[in-house]
Computed example of a mutant assay.
Amino acid sequence: MALAEIPLCVWRKRSQSFVFRGQTLRYWTAGQGEPLLLIHGFPTASWDWHYLWQPLAQRYRVIACDMLGFGDSAKPANHEYSLLEQADLQQALLAHLNIEQPVHVMAHDYGDSVAQELLARHYESRAQIASCVFLNGGLFPETHRPVLMQKLLLSPLGWMIGRAFSRDGLVKSFRQIFGPQTRPSESEMDDFWSLVESHRGPRIMHKLIAYIPERREQRDRWVTAMQRNDVPLRVIDGEVDPISGAHMVERYRELIPDADTVLLPGIGHYPQIEAPCQVLKHYLSFRDQLLFPPRKVACS
Rank of each mutant, 00 (worst) to 15 (best):
P7W: 05
R251G: 04
L119Q: 09
F140R: 09
E217N: 04
L157R: 15
Q289I: 00
P242S: 07
L139F: 00
T224F: 03
N78D: 15
E124S: 10
Q32V: 03
V19C: 10
H282T: 01
L208F: 01
L83Y: 06
W11K: 13
S173L: 13
R26T: 06
A259V: 13
S17Q: 15
I212A: 03
V231W: 04
R216V: 01
P55F: 00
E117Q: 11
S187M: 14
I212T: 02
V297F: 09
F20L: 04
P55V: 01
F178Y: 15
A107Q: 09
L291F: 01
Y283T: 10
F134W: 10
G162F: 02
Q32P: 04
G22Y: 04
Q128W: 01
V114K: 07
N229A: 14
M160D: 09
A210M: 03
C132I: 15
A107I: 12
F165T: 08
P43K: 12
A259K: 11
R61G: 01
D241Q: 09
R183A: 11
L263N: 06
E214H: 03
L93S: 06
G41F: 00
L135D: 01
Q58D: 09
F178P: 07
E197N: 14
I236T: 06
M205T: 03
A2E: 14
T29M: 11
D72R: 15
R21W: 00
E217G: 08
S185W: 07
D109G: 05
D48G: 04
G33K: 06
Q176M: 14
G162P: 11
T24R: 15
K75G: 06
W47N: 04
S155C: 08
L89S: 00
G169Q: 05
H96E: 15
L208M: 07
R126M: 08
D258N: 15
R59C: 05
G138S: 05
S187Y: 12
K75T: 05
A225S: 11
F42A: 12
V10I: 14
D258Q: 13
S15I: 04
D190H: 14
A107K: 10
Q278K: 13
H104A: 11
K172P: 01
L255T: 14
S82H: 12
W193M: 13
Q272H: 12
S46N: 07
G33S: 02
E5V: 13
P180A: 12
Q116M: 09
D237Q: 13
D237C: 15
G266P: 08
F20D: 02
Y110E: 02
P293H: 07
R167Q: 14
Q227E: 09
P43D: 07
M106G: 03
F165W: 05
L208K: 05
R167E: 08
D72A: 14
K172S: 12
N136D: 04
T44Y: 11
A95V: 10
E239A: 13
L152W: 03
L97G: 10
M205C: 02
L25A: 05
Q23D: 10
P271N: 10
L153I: 13
A298L: 13
Q278N: 08
S173W: 00
F140G: 10
E197Y: 09
E80A: 14
A130W: 00
K151A: 11
L284A: 05
R21H: 11
H108P: 05
R21G: 00
W28N: 08
